[in-house]
């Protein structure tokens, strides 16, 4: 190397050369940031298991909430209430969303109506959940004159609808063109093609969206605060109705240890429910590939 006068620069990067050093430092910062972002998740989970797990027993699933200084108790009525209201919301938003998605994805995708509807649905995904509650209050509660499970269900359906609609639209678009064309070629009407070929093929994708929407609705509190309110008794659809989410909110502000413990246990139950729904939707979504 010393024979000729130019020396080749080494192509191996020196760790303390300025450019390489900056790169390493930034990498370290990124890794730290990513790890730090996972801490809250683990902290929440650990606390849920630690504080919520203590009270986990069969009693909480069938007992009614305790009064102020009572010990024990559970939140069976809140679990029933959450399931009932999410059920109402699903019954409204699933047919609504899927039928609109069929029009958007297949029957008339480029029409003005479809474009505006797509835009409306995207806008509704960003609608603050509390405003869904305000709307349900103005329409259902003021009309009926009292708080009810129906009002809560309507409020939740507003939040589920755009999720169901947009994921179903994507799922229907993803069905291979040749399959649809084969059906048309055999003389199927558009409706027959949709019902007998496209929808069954798109079903896993549609179900993924529906399950995600249900998971989201189950955890929503804000829309229920002044539509279904809360109740210490078992479900009566025309009366104020308890839900897990509102129970957690109400009990978290109480000065009684028993209620706070129940809030943690209710959170554990709610998070397990939501996680299970998420995992189911992922499993379905993965299988279709």
């Amino acid at each position: 190397m010393t024979d000729n006068h130019c020396t080749l620069p080494t192509l191996v990067r020196q760790p303390f050369e300025r450019r390489a050093f900056i790169s390493y430092v930034l990498s370290a910062i990124t890794i730290l940031a990513a790890v730090a972002a996972c801490i809250p998740l683990f902290s929440v989970l650990v606390m849920l298991i630690y504080r919520g797990g203590r009270r986990l027993s069969l009693e909480i699933f069938y007992a009614l909430p305790p009064t102020a200084f009572e010990s024990g108790g559970g939140f069976g009525n809140a679990i029933v209430g959450t399931l009932f209201m999410v059920g109402i919301a699903a019954a409204i938003s699933i047919p609504f969303g899927i039928l609109a998605a069929i029009y958007l994805a297949e029957l008339n995708p480029h029409s003005k109506a479809a474009q505006i509807a797509r835009f409306s649905a995207k806008t509704m995904t960003g609608l603050p959940s509390i405003l869904a509650g305000v709307f349900a209050y103005a329409t259902v509660v003021l009309t009926l004159g009292h708080y009810s499970a129906w009002a809560g269900g309507v409020a939740l359906s507003l939040l589920m609808l755009p999720v169901v609609l947009l994921t179903a639209e994507q799922a229907i678009i993803m069905v291979p063109r040749p399959m649809k064309e084969a059906a048309y070629g055999m003389g199927c009407t558009p409706a027959q093609t949709m019902i007998k070929v496209t929808l069954p093929v798109a079903m896993p994708g549609i179900i993924t969206g529906v399950v995600l929407a249900v998971a989201r609705a189950a955890g929503e509190t804000a829309p229920l605060l002044f539509t279904s309110l809360f109740s210490d008794y078992w479900l009566q659809a025309n009366e104020p109705t308890a839900s897990l989410a509102v129970l957690i909110y109400n009990y978290s502000g109480m000065p009684f240890e028993n209620q706070i413990e129940l809030a943690w246990t209710a959170s554990l139950v709610l998070v397990v429910l939501v996680f299970v729904l998420n995992i189911i939707s992922r499993a379905i979504g993965q299988r279709k590939k």
Partner: peptide, 21 residues
């Protein structure tokens, strides 16, 4: 997936965690 699960936790649970932790 872990980051996506962060989004799945209901906000009222974050509220409870915020108050007590």
């Amino acid at each position: 997936n872990i980051i996506e699960l962060l989004a799945a936790i209901p906000s009222v649970v974050y509220g409870l965690w915020g108050i007590f932790v």
